[in-house]
Amino acid sequence: MATDRKFGDPALFGEVWADDYDDRTSLDPTPAVDFLAPLAKGGSALELAVGTGRVALPLAARGIRVEGVEGSAKMAARLREKPGGEDVPVTVGDMADVPVTGPFTLVYLVYNTLFNLLEAERQQDCFRNVARVLDDEGAFVVETYVPDPSFFDRGQRVQALSVTEDSATIEVYRFDLAAQRFHSQKITFGADGVRLRPHAERYCWPAELDVMAARAGLRLDRRVADWSGRPFGPDSTGHVSVYRPER
């Protein structure tokens, strides 16, 4: 699939993935929804980078009023096609701007999506603008991986993801360690040609996110290793962090 989108364009991910995102993403949303639903406290929730509604729709099915912000009009269209999709309002725009008014009792970002903002300043803007729309008793929930320095070895990486009789898929990474950023291409060679799926992230360690939160007037309320609530520790590969307004 060809695209004229550039790295850093909020619509790039959706432009590349929207057509078959749900087919290729088999993550069970139930643990995330179980974790998030009590935090909404019967109020309204906002999902940044709502995508095709993998989490937003089952959360709304529990009686919570959910809105979304999505950088890709194609992704938002996929959400609206699903049962209940018309009941989840979606604003197409840059999630760092949080282009909605609120207030919300819950704002959340799942599946490493905060890292899709490629500049530290834009990640900070996201925290600051979430604080603007968050209720005084509200919660901002962020799910990301914990960066693994061994993955960045020598500033590049090539992985063979799949090999079949008529296709092969590899993923190629280039890392900018000073900027904490990578650019990647998932490349599929098949009988019908070559397909490219570009992606980029600026990754952060949990402590860096805590500093961004503090600058935005938010404090870390709790951090767990995953949606099941397992304790977070030095060997955790991911985290779910809950931030609340300073009092």
Rank of each mutant, 00 (worst) to 15 (best):
D136K: 14
V163H: 09
L134D: 00
E137S: 04
D136A: 12
F151Y: 15
S162M: 05
R132W: 00
F151H: 13
R122K: 11
F115N: 09
V146T: 11
N129A: 06
D125A: 15
E119G: 09
P147K: 07
D135Y: 00
L118A: 11
R157Y: 07
T164H: 11
T164R: 13
F115I: 01
R128P: 00
F140H: 01
A139V: 07
V163S: 13
A131T: 03
V163D: 10
D135W: 00
R128N: 13
D125K: 08
Y145P: 02
S162P: 01
V146M: 03
D136F: 09
R157H: 12
A160R: 11
E143S: 12
V133S: 07
D125E: 15
R132S: 05
R157M: 09
P149I: 02
T144C: 15
R154F: 09
F140I: 02
F140Q: 06
Q123T: 03
A160Q: 14
A131W: 02
Y145M: 07
F151P: 09
D136Q: 13
Q156P: 05
V158H: 10
P149Q: 01
N116D: 12
E143Y: 07
R157F: 11
R154C: 04
D125N: 11
V130I: 14
F127E: 01
R154Q: 13
F140V: 01
L134M: 00
V163Y: 06
S162V: 03
V130P: 11
Y145L: 08
V141N: 05
V141I: 08
V158A: 11
Q156L: 11
N129S: 04
V133H: 05
F127D: 00
G155P: 08
E119H: 02
V141G: 08
N129M: 10
L118W: 12
D125Y: 08
Y145D: 10
L118T: 10
V130F: 08
